[in-house]
Design a protein around this nucleic acid. Structure first.
Length: 412
RNA sequence: GGAAGGGUAGCCGAGUGGUCAAAGGCAGCAGACUGUAAAUCUGCCGACAUUGAGUCUACGUAAGUUCGAAUCUUACCCCUUCCA
C-alpha cells in the first residue's frame, strides 16, 4: 500500500476493495497507463462443475478491466487440476480424472460465456485457454533442464504456504509441490504466446504468481507482474458463498436464481457495503451512505439493491421481476403469504402429513419429515400442524420454515 | 527396507468388550425473538417404523474370538511421521 495509482481502472479496483497485493505497484501503474496492447490472465480450477460466488470477484474484476479496454485471458486449469493446488490446503485433494475435468470445464464455460465477453468482434475480447494444451506436452527431462534449474527449492520451502504445511508436519507430496512450477510455466507460456504480462489471482495464489514472474525474469530477462485479489470472506470469517445445504453456485441448475437472490438479500448487515463495492457499480459515495444504516431496518434497501444487481448480472435482468413478485407475495405486508410459482404435487387420494412432506421434497426422509412436524416446523395453509397423523384431504399449501412452499392437490 | 502412529457420521474430534446410533465442537434444519439480518435461547440432526422408545445399516476392508465388538485377534488396503 502507500502507493497511489494514477491509472483510473486500477485505482477504482483498489478503492472498491478488489486488490490486495502487487508485485510492483509503480510499474503496474505505468503499464496500465500504456498502450493496452498487453494482456492479463486469470486462472481457475476445473475441480467443480460450476463456479460459485467466490469466483464472482475475479469475474467482475475482469469485466471492469475489459470495459476499460484491457485484454483478458481466461485460463482453465485443465492440466493443473490433474495435480491439485497444495497451497494452504490442510489435506491433499482428491485426484480428478480427465473426463471429469473436461466435463467441468465445459459446464463452467457455458456460464462464463454469459458473464465475460469472449466475442471475436470486440478488439479486447477475452480469450480462453486451457493449460492442459501445453502442460500435457511437457517432457520431464527437458522441462527440468530448461526450467527446473531456475527454481530454488530453498525458496519454495520458505514460502508461507508451503512452510506452514511443513511446520505442521503435514504431508506434502512431490506431485503437489510441482504445482507451483506448472503455474509458473503457464505464465511463461502465456507471456510468450499472448504477450501476457500480468497475472491476477486470489490472495492464496501469491506465491504461485511470484514464481511465474521470477521465471519470466530468469528465462527472458523481461518484466512481468502480478496482482492478487482480496479473499472474499463474510464478517464472521467464513468463506463467502458457502452455506451448507450448499455452496451458492453461479449455475442456475445448481442454485436457482431465486435462492441466489435470497442469499444476497440475507447477507450479514456488516457485509453489505463491502459487497456493494465489489459487486455493483454504485457510486462509492452512495454506498458509504448505506453504512450509516447498519443496525437499522433501512439497511434492507441496500441489501435488496445488492441482490438485484448481482442477480441480474449473473442470471440476467429478466428473472428479477418474477423473483420480486415471489418475494413480495412471500414477505410483503408482514403476514403469512406464499410465493406465486410454487411447485404443485398431485396425490390420488388423501395423504398423511408426514408422507406428504417427504414426497414433496420438503424433507429428505420420512424420519426427518416426522421430526420436522413434531418440531413444529410444518404448516398447512399457514397454520402449524404438529401431528404426523394429520391427513391432507383437500388441496392446500404446505410449508416448511419461511421459505419452502409446496402446493398439494388432492384428486378424490 | 526398519520403527512408530493413524483410518470413527458433512467436517473436526472423543470413545479401547456390554449402559454406543457413538461425548464435544463446527456446519445444517426447525421454533422463539426480529428486519427475510446478526446475536441469544429451545428442539432436531443414520434410515425405517412408532405415540411410544422397536427394527435395520454404520466406526478403513475381510475373516475370526465372544452370549455380546467401534473397542480383542489375524490378514489385507490406505494415510502420516521418523530412520535408512
Amino acid at each position: 500500500m502507500g502507493f497511489e495509482f494514477t491509472n483510473q481502472t486500477i485505482r477504482a479496483l483498489c478503492e472498491r476493495g478488489f486488490l490486495y497485493q502487487f508485485t510492483s505497484p509503480e510499474s503496474i501503474d505505468k503499464l496500465f497507463n500504456s498502450d493496452k496492447s498487453f494482456s492479463f490472465y486469470v486462472g481457475f480450477d476445473a475441480t467443480a462443475k460450476s463456479l460459485h460466488v467466490g469466483h464472482l470477484l475475479w469475474i467482475i474484476a475482469v469485466n471492469r478491466l475489459q470495459r476499460t479496454g484491457y485484454r483478458a485471458i481466461i485460463l482453465t486449469g485443465g492440466g493443473t487440476s490433474k495435480i491439485g493446488d497444495p497451497t494452504w490446503k490442510d489435506k491433499q485433494r482428491v485426484m480428478l480424472g480427465s473426463n471429469e475435468i473436461s466435463a467441468n470445464i465445459d459446464s463452467v464455460m457455458r456460464k462464463l460465456r454469459t458473464l465475460i465477453d469472449f466475442a471475436d468482434s470486440s478488439a479486447n475480447c477475452a480469450k480462453l485457454v486451457n493449460n492442459d494444451d501445453w502442460l500435457s506436452k511437457i517432457e520431464y527431462l527437458p522441462f527440468l533442464r530448461d526450467y527446473g534449474r531456475f527454481f530454488s527449492v530453498n525458496r519454495m520451502l520458505s514460502m508461507d504456504s508451503i512452510s506452514e504445511r511443513l511446520k505442521r508436519r503435514q504431508h506434502l507430496s512431490f506431485l503437489e509441490f510441482n504445482y507451483m512450477l506448472l503455474q509458473a510455466y503457464d505464465f511463461l507460456h502465456l507471456f510468450n504466446t499472448e504477450n501476457c504480462v500480468v497475472q491476477i489471482g486470489g490472495a492464496d495464489q501469491w506465491a504461485n504468481i511470484i514464481f511465474g514472474v521470477e521465471l519470466i525474469k530468469k528465462v527472458y530477462d523481461k518484466e512481468a507482474y502480478g496482482m492478487t485479489l482480496n479473499l472474499l470472506t463474510t464478517s464472521t470469517g467464513a468463506k463467502m458463498g458457502k452455506t451448507e445445504s450448499g455452496t451458492v453456485w453461479l449455475d442456475e441448475e445448481m442454485t436457482s436464481p431465486f435462492d441466489f437472490w435470497q442469499y444476497f438479500r440475507n447477507v450479514d448487515d456488516r457485509d453489505v457495503c463491502k459487497l456493494l463495492k465489489l459487486f455493483t457499480d454504485i457510486e462509492l459515495s452512495e454506498i458509504d451512505s448505506y453504512g450509516a444504516m447498519i443496525g437499522t431496518p433501512s439497511i434492507n434497501e441496500a441489501k435488496i439493491k445488492l441482490a438485484d444487481n448481482i442477480t441480474s448480472f449473473v442470471h440476467g435482468k429478466d428473472c428479477i421481476a418474477s423473483i420480486k413478485a415471489t418475494v413480495n407475495n412471500l414477505f410483503g405486508n408482514g403476514s403469512e403469504n406464499q410465493p406465486y410459482d410454487i411447485e404443485e404435487f398431485r396425490f390420488q387420494s388423501s395423504v398423511q402429513l408426514d408422507r406428504a412432506v417427504f414426497e414433496t421434497g420438503l424433507a429428505p426422509s420420512m424420519s426427518m419429515s416426522r421430526k420436522l412436524i413434531e418440531g413444529r416446523g410444518v404448516k398447512v395453509d399457514g397454520s402449524i400442524v404438529d401431528s404426523i397423523k394429520y391427513r391432507i384431504t383437500a388441496s392446500c399449501v404446505l410449508s416448511v420454515g419461511k421459505k419452502n412452499f409446496v402446493k398439494i392437490a388432492v384428486e378424490e
